[in-house]
Design a protein around this nucleic acid. Sequence first.
DNA 1: TAGATTGTTAATCGATTAACAATC
DNA 2: TAGATTGTTAATCGATTAACAATC
Lengths: 211, 211
Amino acid sequence: MAKDNQVSITVVRRLPKYYRYLTELKEKGISRISSQELSVLTGFTASQIRQDFNNFGGFGQQGYGYNVEDLHRELKKILGLDSNYNAVIVGAGNLGQAIANYKGFEDAGFKVLSLFDRNPRVIGLKIRDIEIRDIETIDSFIKENNVQIGIITTPKESAQSVADIYVKNGIKGIWNFAPTDLVVPDNVVVEHVRLNESLFVLSYFLRAMNE
Amino acid sequence: MAKDNQVSITVVRRLPKYYRYLTELKEKGISRISSQELSVLTGFTASQIRQDFNNFGGFGQQGYGYNVEDLHRELKKILGLDSNYNAVIVGAGNLGQAIANYKGFEDAGFKVLSLFDRNPRVIGLKIRDIEIRDIETIDSFIKENNVQIGIITTPKESAQSVADIYVKNGIKGIWNFAPTDLVVPDNVVVEHVRLNESLFVLSYFLRAMNE
DNA sequence: TAGATTGTTAATCGATTAACAATC
DNA sequence: TAGATTGTTAATCGATTAACAATC
């Protein structure tokens, strides 16, 4: 299913940073940038930046550099940010609510349609205008609302069963905040946000710094 | 200041996963594990696992494997999780509150002493027993409470100025959730949680999968 | 002792950097 | 045209994997 024209994951993980700086440049009205200038902003080498872009075709012009608006548009397309996505969240605790509340995702094209939980005390509440629904009703909701992304903000014990629900209902992208690994079919993408692990890495370097 | 005996960052970022599985094994009462078995759990190769551990000294025993409890304790020490840390959060919005509310961090030895904000409407409120204080009072609070970790959950516009406050007050570890880069002195460690970038990578693979 | 599995060296693979011809 | 900067190939560097002697 996926193209064999595989770009390495280390390259892909740099793309959002390029996109972020290009958005800023565009907002500032800067129309042109060289790999050397982007290197100063991002901290990547100019050579690496040119290599990265050339994974997707030549966006630049010799002697000139890159047109900010063009490059921004290309990266937007590459990252899939030129379409809109519908998402749901299972786990209406603080983290789930925080994500539902964050306007930034909606601005980027990711709309949270509903939260789901099994706790009767939160079912029926609203976060902004997003309702918390009973987890028992999720199957029909996903089918009827063209949901492409499933977010997991439950405790780790429930995460795999939530993933199973998502997969069963045809969701192909899972954003997992629970501190556990998930087993899903090959055609389903899982992106983890590992808050614990991030904090532990900070702790490691904090200690390493003081030795 | 840092030891020159540098372990590469790619290795360091794998350590929390080892630690997580060793914690599980320990809870299950399993006392012994081979690199081959750990490979099945983690998805890393057995060879890589042995290489990783040997960055920190030989924890295993030929013909036997690794003692779960010993290895768990060593990793805990390496990650700096055998001490406790005091943290504060600037930015008492949903994300800041969610982090303050998360018991898991406290269990791992990271205690949030206070949230800070400049919005008078939230100052004085409590999340669990953690008070939201006026950002104007942060300097003395940090000095009087032995705070080692500063967490940033403000909008990106304020993040650098918060980092400056942390640095000025001697904080050496910053956990940044704002979608921006930070400039800090060499002896200060910054760990970023880039929610936007994570979501964009999910979006990338979602698209790549369907082409 | 025989079997198992580590610790470690050597080989391979992939990612980054350097260099420069192409060309705007 | 001359100067600048890309796109791309080649060189280097670092990380992963393979292999196996050491040894429990």
